Simulated scan of single mutants.
Amino acid sequence: MYYVYVIDDDGRLRGVFPLKKMITSPSISKVKHVMKKDPFSVRVDSSIDDVVQTIEKYDLVAIPVVDSIGRLVGQITVDDVMDEAREQSTRDYQLASGLSQDVETDDKVLRQTSARLPWLIIGMLGGIGNSMILGNFNGTFVTHPEMALYIPLIGGTGGNVGTQSSAIVVQGLANNSLNATDTLKQVGKESIVALINATIISMMVYMYNFIRFGGAATVTYSVSISLFAVVMFASLFGTFVPMTLEKLKIDPAIATGPFISITNDIIGMLLYMRITSLLA
């Protein structure tokens, strides 16, 4: 037992009285003088996910449960929801890792295969899409073969930036520090962060290519401009997608996995080759 809950004559929850106050408060004190009024509570029809988030957000060891008119009907302790919290964390981690369903190490081979294969196939199709994009720019590679050296840089940076942005948003949505209605505010904030990161990264690459290829070489400025555009797009896309999924009542953890990486790879490569062709 962690708390004594204070109710009125109608059974409605009015406050909470921590047991430690029985020691620290004078014996002549009335409960109403030492109780904590308007305590956090959950409704009987609240989802387990909501209970877990409330307990984690306010660092509680127990929370009272009330009915539709505020009458106390029970309590839920942190031990009661710990298993659910672990299961939720595991589920989100698996979604972010590209697993389409919950699997364990002792599951049968067929189940583990079916959980992994969908995103692997999608990733394969994304790779084929990238190869088709590159195939349309054979002339550019013939004229500027050094452009091929930066394909991994463009793809890898876009995927990493998008994953970082989506992970921050998903975490904020999970702990209620961010609301799905704050999409424009979060996109605006992410735009500033992306602008700073894109500027720093593109300038570093520009200086490297300036020393290696010279200031007049197409690769010197085309890679930097492309990288800037890719970082900006990946940051905003990684922010917008999980916020949209949350509005649609779809688990936003999906957005931290292969979906963001694959999409950013394709769009990033398209931006890279299109910008290079325009500047060549």
Rank of each mutant, 00 (worst) to 15 (best):
11 G>C: 09
1 M>D: 11
25 S>Y: 04
89 S>K: 08
70 G>C: 08
8 D>C: 07
80 D>T: 08
82 M>E: 09
23 I>D: 05
47 S>N: 04
69 I>Q: 13
62 A>H: 04
67 D>N: 15
57 K>V: 01
83 D>R: 08
72 L>H: 07
7 I>E: 01
71 R>N: 11
31 V>S: 06
36 K>S: 12
90 T>V: 15
55 I>Q: 03
16 V>R: 12
22 M>E: 06
8 D>A: 07
54 T>E: 10
10 D>C: 03
3 Y>T: 06
39 P>D: 01
4 V>W: 04
65 V>R: 05
75 Q>S: 13
43 R>S: 15
66 V>G: 02
84 E>Y: 10
60 L>V: 06
85 A>M: 14
65 V>H: 07
77 T>Y: 06
74 G>M: 02
4 V>C: 10
41 S>Y: 14
31 V>N: 06
60 L>N: 07
55 I>H: 05
1 M>V: 14
5 Y>D: 03
34 V>F: 04
93 Y>A: 15
28 I>M: 11
75 Q>I: 15
2 Y>A: 13
67 D>W: 02
79 D>N: 14
8 D>E: 07
2 Y>M: 09
26 P>H: 09
9 D>F: 00
89 S>Q: 12
22 M>K: 05
5 Y>W: 13
17 F>Q: 03
75 Q>G: 03
50 D>T: 10
34 V>N: 13
63 I>D: 01
85 A>G: 01
11 G>P: 13
58 Y>G: 05
51 V>A: 00
15 G>W: 14
79 D>R: 14
9 D>H: 11
20 K>T: 03
95 L>S: 04
80 D>N: 09
71 R>K: 15
45 D>C: 00
62 A>F: 06
79 D>K: 13
56 E>S: 11
33 H>M: 12
26 P>W: 04
46 S>K: 01
51 V>P: 06
43 R>Q: 04
29 S>P: 03
67 D>H: 04
23 I>Q: 09
96 A>E: 05
53 Q>F: 00
87 E>G: 02
62 A>W: 08
23 I>E: 12
71 R>Q: 12
